[in-house]
Design a binder for these strands. Structure first.
Lengths: 202, 202
DNA sequence: AGCACTATTGGCGATGTGTCAATAAGCTCG
DNA sequence: CGAGCTTATTGACACATCGCCAATAGTGCT
């Protein structure tokens, strides 16, 4: 008997209930792919009727979008304090910061980018794209090119973020690269881009 | 009346029928995400009972895997003739070759690498990973490091392939970068990696 | 023409999803 | 403290899709 006390209905504040269901959904979507998670699973684990999930989140995909949004929003906090120093130092520290965050929340981050790194659905793509945009802007600021960047420059920065995501996945999932190797790869790539490619797209 | 002649059943060789259904499936999965394609759609467009699709391909996901496999296999042909010249020249030509292939089959290639909305499925990942491995090996050969590469080196090469895929998607889907800019980004990135990062992982 | 082989069909059962009227939990007010 | 009201929550209905399998009917062969 899993839910001894919930034999009887319990009425929660909408915000509380919503957040509770969301946390359960995060756990489920974080541990297996979208198609293998049913709203029934989420509802059961939340001790709630399935209809309530739809009531709070609309469709299943909407719930999933909310989950991905949360998973991707965690890392992007506190990118604010930019370190001082010359370019190589700043590149180093932003890469280090990225790897820290990513390895700390590795499971959820992998789920979000893995499900999203290859998104097929338009809405999912949109959510990922927004997170990538934020990260790309952060990179440009970190390397001192963040003042009114051209569309082309932002696009190139997004490409670099793609490299970072891809490499971090490679690192965390396959485990053949060491952290130092990953760090070196990302840092020198960034420096090369800033030196020789970004200037072409002022 | 769409299928005037197929009002009556027609019996085909298993291979022919299989390929016909597969081509229809490619068209469908190439134009919209996985979840929005039903086996009923495919069967109807192929002028065939839905059960036959399962008979030839098993489950819907199996059919999808077959489709992705085909889409990804197209580009990887004819990577054989490696150009002569010094390193920058060879890097240039492999990048150019990649962009040629990718832009020629842009729609199907985008669908395949975008992975059609199958969020994080293990089997789909596997298929993509194999294609990436092949491409990564090609890159290493092109830059003259293809003889018995270490696991770490292959991992780094996969990272570069990730950058290439990501950047090509950025190029083809958003259209803010020019081909020359993409080419420059990928070529100089590759050179930087070969110069300063790959040597660390002999 | 009749027969055998098998490609092909059509429907059954199971699973999942979105919706909506009905229900009851918990607060407020007399 | 009980009645009533608000609304969080339920349960079931309708619909779509999928995998499966026995029945059916092309098609070549004797």
């Amino acid at each position: 008997m899993v839910h001894a006390e919930s034999m009887r209905r319990r009425r929660l504040e909408p915000d509380a209930r919503r957040e509770q269901i969301l946390s359960v959904a995060i756990r489920h979507f974080g541990s297996r792919p979208y198609a293998e998670v049913s709203t029934t699973d989420v509802a059961r684990d939340a001790g709630v009727a399935r209809g309530l999930v739809n009531h709070y989140f609309g469709t299943k995909k909407d719930l999933y979008l909310e989950v991905v949004r949360v998973m991707l929003t965690v890392p992007e906090v506190a990118l604010e304090q930019l370190p001082e120093g010359d370019l190589p130092e700043r590149a180093d520290s932003i890469v280090g910061y990225f790897l820290d965050v990513v390895s700390r929340h590795s499971t959820s981050w992998l789920a979000a980018t893995g499900a999203g790194g290859m998104a097929g659905d338009a809405d999912v793509k949109q959510v990922i794209a927004e997170a990538v945009d934020v990260a790309a802007a952060g990179v440009l600021r970190a390397v001192g090119m963040g003042d009114d960047p051209s569309p082309a420059l932002r696009a190139m920065s997004r490409s670099y973020v793609g490299l970072a995501i891809w490499t971090a996945q490679e690192w965390l999932q396959r485990g053949v690269l060491t952290r130092d190797q990953v760090h070196a790869l990302l840092a020198t790539s960034l420096l090369a881009l800033v030196d020789r490619v970004f200037p072409q797209a002022v």
